[in-house]
Design a protein around this nucleic acid. Structure first.
Length: 425
RNA sequence: GGAGAGGUGACCGAGUGGUCGAUGGUGCACGCCUGGAAAGCGUGUGUGGCGGGAACGUCACCGGGGGUUCGAAUCCCUUCCUCUCCGCCA
């Protein structure tokens, strides 16, 4: 959320940000509602002051045994006025509440202007795109032939966009999770395993709510939601807290499944593991002092990249443009892994700096040098999306006979297994 | 799920309608004392909104929301959470 004062004093900048994001949110109601709120507030407070001192006086007079009937009536009348004004105040606040939480984050100046993912800026590339002297299969064909995926039964058991991993694929998924956590542990991340359901306040804190309500799964009759990413429970760990500046930066990692309704993606990526309602992810989350966050984003990105490097998967780094960057983010890098089956790079990690946007929503603060509370900066990134990593391994490590080599660093996690072959059952 | 007890400031803990943003203690900060330290003594020590250049003023906040009242931490309703007992259960 943006600071009211900031919006008030920089409405042009906020509008320019909306334009850059291709966001058609209408700010025209803001100045009037904001001004009205403050005017009424001043008036209400003045009346309350009168009431407070009057009430105190009544207390004194009663002790002295004097008659207070008339004064009571006077103060009572002030109370009526206050009630009326407060309902007006409520209207002004309602107007602000239906607008301000829907305003996305300001964007860092170095973020390129653009309309869609076409305009994202390539920052770097790592690794050699593999060449094959046989017809390349995509992960669906590979996995189905190997008997490590069962899409049909997953559809029977649950529905579309779910998958059953079998045998070595299930093991590889667990191996990847364990491997990622081990690497990040060494990089200084403290592991937490949070709840996989969160309440509405947490969803608001990280910016999923109120705007993206239709993108998450809600539990019937409860204010509980399946986590769309570990970012939500982990960032909200410190909601309503003032963090000791000496503890910063705090670096967490968390493995969780992620649940997404994919409401806006009906025809897209219907084949295979790319876009599922449920997928696993190891998430990295930072809480930093404001002045440190820009450097921390670079570190975070490196930490995520290191997983791809150790797995020897070719990838490129994209700096998202203003039209493609998410609601809460001020700046975001996507890591895109090479997928031979699609002959293209696909997103496998997203590393974002949220500035003080989430911290303000979730009231996560620290203290500055003068001991005054100030909002922290929050950052997070996938390190990495596990399902897409598995898919990338299958496609990049496939062999002519349809088997798949296990990346060297994962062999110990696979009980020494080096090749994934057709499953026995 | 049934019965009961609670939720107060960084922490402990008073406060059951009136000058209470809240006694006291611990902790913390600064000062005095000391060769130095401990002890002791003194002073200070919440957050947010609004107004103001600032000093400061004012309003709000005693789990959340609503109500009664001239006035609520204190009374009523509702909701969430914690603890104890019973039930159920991986």
């Amino acid at each position: 959320m943006l600071d009211l004062k900031f919006i008030r004093e920089n409405l042009d900048q906020v509008q320019a940000m909306l334009d850059a994001r291709n966001n058609s949110l209408d700010l025209s109601a803001f100045p009037k509602a904001d001004q009205r709120r403050r005017e009424i507030l001043v008036e209400v407070e003045q009346l309350k002051q009168e009431r407070n001192s009057g009430s105190k006086q009544i207390g004194v007079l009663i002790k002295q045994g004097q008659d207070v009937t008339e004064l009571k009536a006077q103060i009572g009348a002030i109370g009526e006025k206050i009630k009326a004004l407060e309902s007006e105040l409520g209207e002004a606040e309602e107007a602000l509440n239906s607008l301000v939480p829907f305003i996305p984050n300001m964007i860092r100046p170095e973020v390129p202007k653009g309309h869609s993912e076409e305009d994202n800026q390539e920052v770097s590339r790592w690794g050699e795109v593999p060449t094959f002297d046989f017809p390349v299969k995509d992960h669906v064909d590979l996995g189905t032939a190997l008997g490590i995926f069962d899409f049909e039964r997953a559809t029977k058991v649950t529905g579309t966009r779910f998958t059953v991993l079998r045998g070595d694929a299930a093991r590889l998924e667990r191996a990847l999770i364990q491997f990622m956590i081990d690497v990040h542990e060494e990089q200084g991340y403290f592991e937490v395993m949070p709840p996989f359901m969160v309440n509405g306040d947490s969803m608001f804190g990280t910016g999923q709510f109120p705007k993206m309500k239709e993108d998450v799964f809600k539990l019937e009759g409860m204010d509980y939601y399946l986590v769309p990413t570990a970012e939500v429970p982990v960032t909200n760990l410190h909601r309503d807290e003032i963090l000791d500046p000496q503890q910063l930066p705090i670096q967490y990692q968390a493995f969780t499944p992620c649940f997404r309704s994919e409401a806006g993606a009906y025809g897209r990526d219907t084949r295979g593991l790319i876009r599922q309602h449920q997928f696993n992810k190891v998430e990295l989350v930072w809480f930093t002092k404001p002045e440190a966050s820009e450097a921390c984003l670079e570190q975070l990105r490196q930490d995520a990249e290191s997983i791809l490097q150790k797995l020897k998967l070719p990838y490129r780094v994209m700096l998202l443009c203003s039209g493609d960057i998410s609601f809460s983010a001020a700046k975001c890098y996507d890591l895109e892994v090479w997928l031979p089956g699609q002959n293209t790079y696909r997103e496998i990690s997203s590393c974002s700096n949220f500035w003080d946007f989430q911290a303000r929503r979730a009231k996560i603060r620290t203290r500055n040098e003068n001991g005054k509370p100030e909002f922290v900066h929050t950052l997070n990134g996938s390190g990495l999306a596990v399902g897409r990593t598995l898919l990338a391994i299958l496609e990049n490590y496939q062999q002519a006979d349809g088997t798949v080599r296990v990346p060297e660093v994962l062999v110990p996690y696979m009980n020494g297994k080096t090749i994934i072959e057709k499953q026995r059952m």
